[in-house]
Simulated assay, not measured.
Amino acid sequence: MDRRPSSPTSLTGYAYAALLLCALLIPGVALAQATNLPYEDGLATLRTSLTGPVPFIISLVGIVACGAMLIFGGEISGFLRTLVFIVLVISIIVQATQVVELLGGSWTGDVRHAVALGLPLGGLV
């Protein structure tokens, strides 16, 4: 008897058909949405810890120190210069939230609050 092995294309066709069948038979799994993702609590904690007066003062000192190092540092190596720039960028990122609030803007980070208050979303949704 001459038996030929099945071709890989027919196996992938069966796999796609099985996947489609599972998606049609179990729509709750296919369309499941999580209301609270597991990393949201950690990000909220990080945001609160970076928006207080202490991080603002630390980032201000970092900006002044990095600026002084770049201006009065003389000849520094490329690695140290890169580290100074990294500290400078992190300090500016930490201070950006405070600067935005100082200029009159605020962002709660959740579109649902803006919708509940009736605020214009400006293309966020």
Score class of each variant (00 low, 15 high):
Pro53Gln: 05
Gly104Trp: 02
Trp107Arg: 02
Gly62Ser: 10
Arg4Leu: 13
Ile26Thr: 01
Ala17Asp: 13
Asp110Arg: 14
Leu25Gly: 08
Asp110Trp: 06
Ala23Leu: 07
Leu11Ser: 01
Glu40Leu: 11
Gln95Leu: 11
Thr108Val: 05
Arg81Gly: 01
Gly122Tyr: 11
Val61Arg: 04
Trp107Tyr: 13
Ala34Val: 11
Ile92Ala: 15
Ser91Glu: 02
Ser6Leu: 14
Leu46Cys: 02
Ile86Arg: 02
Pro120Cys: 00
Ala44Met: 09
Arg81Pro: 02
Leu83Ala: 09
Ala114Pro: 00
Leu31Ser: 08
Ile71Val: 15
Asp2Ser: 07
Tyr16Gly: 13
Leu70Glu: 09
Val64Lys: 04
Glu101Phe: 01
Val64Ile: 15
Val99Cys: 05
Thr12Ala: 12
Arg4Cys: 07
Ala17Tyr: 08
Ala44Tyr: 01
Thr48Ser: 07
Gly109Leu: 04
Ala15Ile: 15
Ile92Trp: 04
Leu31His: 10
Ser91His: 00
Gly42Phe: 04
Ala114Thr: 05
Thr97Phe: 09
Ser77Lys: 13
Leu46Ser: 08
Thr51Gln: 12
Val99Met: 14
Ile86Leu: 12
Ser7Glu: 14
Gly74His: 01
Leu46Gly: 06
Val115Asn: 10
Leu70Gln: 11
Thr35Leu: 11
Ala23Ile: 05
Ile57Cys: 08
Glu101Tyr: 09
Pro120Arg: 14
Gln98Lys: 06
Arg112His: 13
Leu119Tyr: 13
Tyr14Asp: 15
Asn36His: 07
Thr12Gly: 09
Gln33Ile: 13
Ser106Tyr: 10
Thr9Trp: 06
Gly123Asn: 13
Ala23Pro: 01
Asn36Ile: 02
Val115Leu: 15
Ser59Pro: 07
Leu88Phe: 12
Gly74Met: 04
Val125Ala: 14
Pro53Val: 12
Ile57Met: 07
Leu31Val: 02
Ile92Pro: 04
Ala68Asn: 12
Gly104Gln: 06
Ile26Gln: 05
Phe85Trp: 13
Ala18Thr: 12
Ala23Val: 05
Asp2Glu: 05
Ala30Thr: 13
Ile63Trp: 00
Leu20Met: 12
Phe56Cys: 05
Pro8Cys: 00
Ile71Asp: 07
Ala18Phe: 08
Gly67Glu: 00
Pro5Val: 10
Ala18Pro: 01
Ile86Thr: 04
Met1Gly: 14
Gly67Trp: 01
Ala116His: 01
Glu40Lys: 10
Val99Glu: 04
Gly62Val: 02
Leu60Ala: 14
Tyr14Ala: 15
Thr48Gln: 11
Gly122Ala: 12
Arg47Thr: 00
Val89Gln: 00
Val84Phe: 02
